[in-house]
Design a protein around this nucleic acid. Structure first.
Lengths: 142, 142
DNA sequence: GCTACATGCTCTAGCTGCTGTAGGTTCAAC
DNA sequence: GTTGAACCTACAGCAGCTAGAGCATGTAGC
């Protein structure tokens, strides 16, 4: 039986995050000690590892919920899990494309800055005048 | 004199977003009509365009605040603006590297999935067992 | 058995950067 | 004068946590 702190250390998760996962229904409500402290078993350790790993791969919590659901039904076809992963892959690819455009633009700004006064700063100039940009970068960033 | 709605349309910003920028001090408190509605001039139009453009390039609001500050002091050296842009570029490059690792891993998962039952699903299997991963992908995702 | 202290508990607020809604007011055209 | 679009303030909510307050429990040493 593991305390929440031990579970946290084993999975590289913060204690509060585990409680948060419980709150949003990703982790089950665990058993409690006589004094009311959470006690976890190996199943929960596996489940949390799964969640953390999926998070590291950028899956949103909703997708992880679906994946966990599928994982609980070994006889169902895996097309759904496959589709979730593909969706995530598409997302990642889209973000990559946007970030690459941003990188290009930022590199250009930085390269052209000659280090004078802010009045002549290329960085500020480009920001002031969108038409100086080579690439599209709408909805970018985050 | 522009109303907030016109300013919003001209800059591709939502009205609420403009009010939000005012609230967090990115936009100045504008003049008001007799009835208390905001009225903007060209300076504000430029300032908001600057903000939006910087946001499209992924600069966080704090960085934009600094950039605007620098922009208001044309005689100061532009090293600071340059540094802010470089910092942003580094951020973008880091995110790119992480996302590329994610893409690799997701591609592998998807490619190896043979479309059987979830019990044998590669996607779920990889998520269950971190050691199957080729790349590092810690702190990834968002 | 007692004390000290790490760890646990719940609850609430805060982070970023907006976005949406409720319930009311102003403006401009007709 | 009346309509209807656009405006106003104030506040709640999104994701995915994270941090803190104020208190309870668990455990190790003595």
């Amino acid at each position: 039986m593991l305390t929440i702190g031990t579970l946290a250390r084993r999975t590289g998760t913060k204690v509060q995050t585990i409680r948060y996962y419980e709150q949003v229904g990703l982790m089950p409500e665990p058993g409690r000690s006589e004094g009311g402290q959470r006690r976890y078993g190996d199943a929960e350790l596996d489940r949390l590892s799964f969640i953390r790993h999926a998070r590291q791969l950028g899956f949103p919590l909703d997708a992880i919920r679906e994946l966990l659901n599928l994982s609980d039904h070994p006889n169902r076809p895996c097309a759904e899990a496959d589709e979730i992963a593909r969706r995530q892959l598409r997302q990642v690819e889209q973000r990559l494309a946007r970030l690459e455009a941003l990188r290009t633009e930022l590199q250009r700004m930085v390269r052209e800055c000659s280090g004078g006064r802010t009045a002549d700063c290329r960085v500020l100039e480009v920001l002031r005048d969108h038409s100086e940009c080579l690439t599209d970068h709408e909805n970018a960033g985050t």
